[in-house]
């Protein structure tokens, strides 16, 4: 699969841009966190596209971003359960 470039994204409408990035992020995240991949991808997609492209190009920053997202997600789920 050819790498996603800014010009490819620029050619697509905003909704489509998120979809294109998500389709590439998901498998990378799934390799690390199969159970949370959908949620983590959904969280990361809220980040600005330019930053997302950087994450796709550098696995290290993607990994640390994913770990950050997992921590936020777990904290969020903890507050969820405490509300109940």
């Amino acid at each position: 699969q050819e790498p996603l470039t800014a010009s490819m994204l620029a050619a697509a409408p905003p909704q489509e841009q998120k979809q294109m990035i998500g389709e590439r992020l998901y498998p990378l995240i799934h390799a690390m966190h199969p159970m949370l991949a959908g949620k983590i991808t959904g969280m990361l997609l809220e980040i600005d596209n330019s930053e997302l492209l950087l994450l796709l190009e550098s696995p290290d920053s993607l990994h640390s971003k994913i770990e950050e997202a997992v921590a936020v997600l777990q904290a969020h789920q903890a507050t969820e359960t405490s509300h109940k």
Partner: peptide, 26 residues
Amino acid sequence: NGSSSVNWPPEFRPGEPWKGYPNIDP
């Protein structure tokens, strides 16, 4: 209220349109 946060984050599923994107009205 907690209800809005229940469906956060908007989950992404490959091959399905991602629901998290704010619908921009034309």
